[in-house]
Design a protein around this nucleic acid. Structure first.
Length: 471
RNA sequence: GCUCCCUUCGUCUAGCGGUUAGGACGCUGGCCUCUCACGCCGGUAACAGGGGUUCGAAUCCCCUAGGGAGCGCCA
């Protein structure tokens, strides 16, 4: 039997990290077992489903590289099929028409809650005829006794008493089938062997199994993955900042970093922290997934992202960095080789956004000096070394403007003035970068170029002289 | 309220009856060093509580506490 899994989001918003992890687990499980991964859009809620959300989900999946073998299928295109199944259930007496007015149901619920009972439909219409011509819903006739046992791949054995369940609506007054019916029909029709989904569906499982059985269909295996919590341990929501997968892309995260982070949230393989997608496929074991919810930790994601920025092909990083430089109004075509910039800076940034920000000085003069850096390094004592550097650097031919020579010049100036290297390199760095942090001074000067370097040294000398004039 | 589920360092986790309870992020001390990062070495910190079972429990059972989900003509 070939394994077939599916990811079945409802298009009522973007693809968030919780959904992405469920999709990842589902994808990995299928790939791991040589099976097929299917994407199905559960858009039966006509009110809330939007085309934008569908696009956002597809975009998120594509960015993460979670490619599916079949689909996307849309439930709205399968209404005829669901209705045929509902009619079949009706004909067999496994479902019935119900015309209980909403008000009655509301008061019933209130009474039950007041009596400390679990609110549920009382089965009033189970045995009375309802005129098919009048408004009504269709309810599934759930077994009244017995237990439904689910051997969940993650949770283990769970059992539910049928007496706790009620007759759920499978077709609305407007004729639209509901979620619990459509999932069951789709999973059966699409031959889904393993249903991997969020654990908020645990309580739906026994109902779905009952419908599956009424239909005479095979019951798939289930794996309910725990939810992802926000940094504070509370349920993930918008106030936790980025939750949308594409928002992470926009903030400069690499898809492999997010994927790696997500797979380790709830799953592990010994002490290994770094996993390529291929390794995940080879090692992933759904039975090894944790049962408890996990809190999202941006610090660890950042660490992984920095790792991947550092180890990825610099050419690719350079390519991905362009739009982020563009956001700063920088066109890297007009300046130092972007590849060289990436190689020099990759280990210094947690995100591509940060990488762009700390590299801007290469392409344009900075606005203001970092206050603390200027105060510490652009002091009167720095005037002499800077002036010497200005002279020495100015004498360099353009073809000598390279790391080896530049490092030599800086060292020589320090020796001539009998100063520590730091007393020379740091003022120079602040003069050229505006801040006290940058790649090695030789690389920094190489990237900035002769013209801008001399210009910025002059600016720093002005700064120091003005400072002295002010006393 | 009822049903189902969860509980190891701050966070992600290893552990599947015998371990000095391991790793990672974070934080932190140091090394490297022209700065910042990277890298390397070290430190900090956990079995929710209580009963059993057992020669021996983080591991098995029960109870308590805390947390979550569901109880829609949403998915």
């Amino acid at each position: 039997m070939t394994v077939r899994t599916r990811f079945a989001p409802s298009p009522t918003g973007y693809l968030h990290v919780g959904g992405a992890r469920t999709a990842l687990f589902s994808y990995l499980f299928a790939r791991r077992h040589g099976g097929r991964f299917i994407l199905r859009i559960e858009d039966t809620d006509l009110e809330r489903s939007t085309a934008e959300s569908v696009n956002a989900i597809l975009e998120g999946m594509a960015w993460l590289g979670l490619d599916y073998d079949e689909g996307p299928f849309y439930q709205t295109q399968r209404f005829d099929r669901y209705n045929a199944v509902i009619d079949e259930l009706l004909a067999k007496g496994l479902a019935y028409r119900c015309d209980c007015p909403k008000e009655r149901l509301d008061t019933l619920r209130e009474e039950q809650m007041a009596a400390k009972l679990k609110p549920r439909y009382d089965g009033r219409c189970r045995s009375h005829e309802v005129d098919p011509g009048q408004p009504h819903v269709i309810r599934f006739r759930n077994p009244e006794s017995g237990v439904v046992v689910v051997d969940d791949l993650i949770r283990g054995r769970m059992s539910f008493d049928n007496a706790e369940l009620d007759d759920l609506i499978i077709r609305r007054t407007d004729g639209a089938p509901t979620y619990n019916l459509s999932v069951v029909v789709d999973d059966a029709d699409m031959g889904i062997t393993h249903v991997i989904r969020g654990d908020d569906h645990i309580n739906n499982t026994p109902r779905q199994i009952n419908i599956l059985r009424a239909l005479g269909k095979e019951v798939p295996r289930y794996a309910h993955v725990p939810m992802i919590l926000g940094e504070d341990g509370a349920r993930l929501s918008k106030r936790h900042g980025a939750v949308s997968v594409v928002a992470y892309r926009d903030q400069g995260y690499l898809p492999e970093a997010l994927l790696n982070y997500l797979v380790r949230l709830g799953w592990s393989h010994g002490d290994q922290e770094i996993f390529s997608l291929d390794e995940m496929v080879a090692l992933f074991d759904i039975g090894q997934v944790n049962k408890a919810a996990a809190a999202f930790d941006t610090d660890k994601l950042d660490w992984l992202n920095q790792h991947y920025i550092q180890h990825a092909d610099p050419k690719r990083i350079a390519h991905l960095l362009r739009p982020h430089l563009g956001d700063l109004g920088i066109d890297p075509a007009e300046g130092a080789d972007l590849l060289a910039v990436v190689k020099a800076q990759a280990a210094r940034a947690k995100t591509l956004v940060e990488l762009a920000r700390i590299s801007a000085f290469v392409y344009r003069d900075f606005e203001d000096y970092d206050e603390a850096a200027a105060k510490k390094h652009l002091r009167p004592a720095a005037e002499e070394p800077l002036a010497s550097l200005r002279t020495e650097l100015d004498m360099l031919a353009l073809e000598d403007w390279e790391p080896g020579t530049l490092e030599h010049v800086v060292h020589r100036v320090a020796e001539e003035l009998d100063l520590n290297l730091g007393k020379v390199a740091q003022p120079l760095r602040v003069a050229v970068v505006g801040r006290a942090a940058s790649p090695g001074i030789d690389i920094t000067l190489t990237l900035v170029g002769k013209e801008a370097t001399l210009r910025r040294i002059d600016r720093a000398l002005d700064h120091i002289r003005r400072l002295r004039a002010e006393g």
